[in-house]
Design a protein around this nucleic acid. Structure first.
Lengths: 345, 345
DNA sequence: ATGAAAGCGCTAACAT
DNA sequence: ATGTTAGCGCTTTCAT
């Protein structure tokens, strides 16, 4: 167990001063050729590595970015992280991840612990609970402190910072239109409650598509799933509601689900009721994840290009960290969705 | 934009020394009641937060652990991270994540950048390429530096460090036996090539189960999928091989797949060939993920308790960081698998 | 060409 | 009860 060697130790060993060592290792022309070579050789032989913590303290830069996401076991979010990681790494940044678990309190705590020196800036997707409470003081304070923040996917418009958002409304409109063009007239919408911005936008897109196609929206055909910490229960509720619709003989021939899980629930009910997808019911959903690809029939999806969202977020943040852009100037980047057609439509 | 206040600034404002401020904020009894109160009040009013970087430099502790995983968009790994996060957080540690992307080079690079001050210890699952090369110098060097390392899932036995492993062999044996007890005699094994330790162990478990049940292993019924960066291609190859078996009329009535994806490929072929699961073919696989839960029929799986693996890894590491255990003493924790029965068997 | 010294923010042993 | 000082590892300005 050989501890890491420091500049001081090298200096002592070679009977030179610390600053001579420091300069030599930076190939400063100030230092004489032979001394420099000797020092560099010695440092290499002892596998010298600068201590990043000391550098951070000096430069007030950690070269680390903090990512706060609601969940990590989630196709969309883990892909976003992938994108962030990719871009950050090639720009020489590390990524530190904290999970809010959709809790307001944990989100606040996470931001506070990371803000005190650990990181240079944040990439955040806001927790459901925070969105419900509409309390964004922790984010505002971080911004006020002069620490750059990039919000992605789940954003709050009034916050003055960069944002990367999915064109949820456009994607939803495209998805709904897609079903209509396949000849479906009565489209069931499976969405979240309105306080979740992305769910809300997708609902709007759905309504917009209907309007443009001169179809009158039917409130019976809109299910706003009640959020539940227990996702089993949430799914159960949803399935029950869909079955209820079928029992009441409320007719529909297409389903647009705002996420894969809702789509999976719908499929389960269809199978139980011996309804064929896509013949009886065409199905499309948001999130081009594992479920869509491997289920049978495979699902037509609206891809949000999660990795690209991650990359763009990291890019915006790192640009600011490198003082490429003034702090006051904020961008909102909109990532377009695309439809990936599979067997369910 | 009000910058964060420092001890020095507080000291200047209140005309006391820095150490008086420091001691007051730590509620040291050395300081007089009124001065202390005054300082605490002032600090609170200005929202003082200690700079963690300075603390790290002083204490030579960052209270951060580094996690290096092959992939993040992966049910098993993201669950492990979840477990790590959970345990680390409640112990006051942050988690910094680096993805090797199954590349040896990137794994080495990641470890080197993080080792220089950023973190106190590592939790690592080794990349496929590293396992193939059998070059573990980067891990060995980290250990030699006195930095604790915990290996999980993909481990290399000769490294002297803590390890958390899945009872892959036992789980595979149980899975195979489970199929045999359901009356299946000819069980097709879909596994990885041998250099991937977990695949290898699962193959061994399969063989062990057959032996114990006095069934002679048939080499035709063992498909070792050739690793491919392009997973589409990898799946395609696998499907082709399964179809080939069917074409040759090599009979099997059960399938044991070492992961969900292989199982999904098998299902696809079965569906194409109009073979019913579970009637004609019973199917069981490793990884209790999203695919298994939401596919139809839902899959019987061997759960590896990923979150528990993460928690245990974090626990082992943090125990060492807290000097609870001597560095030389290494534990290997084996997490038992359990079978989750669903519709495919 | 080399070195001394200050300073990043904080702690703690050691004065006063 | 309060303050001074050294030091964590490094960079950088300013001597020499």
């Amino acid at each position: 167990m050989k501890k890491r060697i420091t500049l001081k130790e090298i200096a002592n060993e070679l009977n030179v001063s610390i600053s001579t060592v420091s300069k030599s290792l930076k190939n400063s022309p100030e230092i004489g050729e032979d001394t420099r070579q000797k020092i560099i050789a010695f440092a290499k032989a002892h596998n010298y590595r600068p201590n990043n913590i000391a550098l951070s303290l000096k430069n007030r830069k950690t070269k680390t970015i903090g990512v706060i996401i609601p969940e990590i076991v989630h196709y969309f979010f883990s892909n976003v992280i992938n994108g962030i990681e990719k871009f950050a790494n090639q720009s020489g940044y590390n990524v530190i991840i904290a999970v809010s678990n959709e809790s307001f309190e944990k989100e606040v705590l996470n931001m506070e612990t990371l803000a005190n020196g650990h990181i240079d800036g944040f990439i955040v997707s806001i927790a459901k609970e925070t969105l419900k409470k509409q309390d964004f003081h922790h984010i505002q304070e971080t911004i006020d402190l002069g620490m750059p923040v990039v919000l992605f996917d789940r954003v709050f418009n009034d916050l003055k910072c960069d944002k990367v958002i999915v064109d949820d409304k456009g994607g939803a409109e495209a998805a709904t239109t897609f079903l209509i063009e396949k000849g479906r007239k009565n489209i069931l919408l499976l969405t979240t409650q309105d306080y979740i911005s992305v769910g809300n936008l997708r609902t709007q897109g759905y309504l917009e598509a209907l309007k443009k196609q001169h179809i009158i929206a039917d409130n019976n055909l809109i299910i706003k799933v009640i959020d539940n910490k227990n996702s089993e229960q949430e799914m159960f509720d949803l399935e029950w509601q869909i079955e209820n619709l079928l029992d009441q003989e409320i007719h529909f021939d297409g389903i647009f689900a705002v996420n894969e899980i809702y789509a999976a629930s719908a499929m389960k009910v269809m199978r139980k009721r011996k309804l064929n997808i896509p013949k009886d019911i065409a199905l499309i959903c948001f999130t081009d994840g594992v479920i869509s690809r491997y289920s049978f029939p495979s699902l037509t999806t609206v891809s949000q290009h999660a990795e690209e969202i991650g990359e763009s977020s990291a890019e915006l943040l790192i640009n600011k960290l490198k003082d490429q852009y003034p702090v006051e100037e904020n961008f909102t980047k909109i990532i377009k969705c695309s439809i990936i057609e599979r067997e369910s439509t």
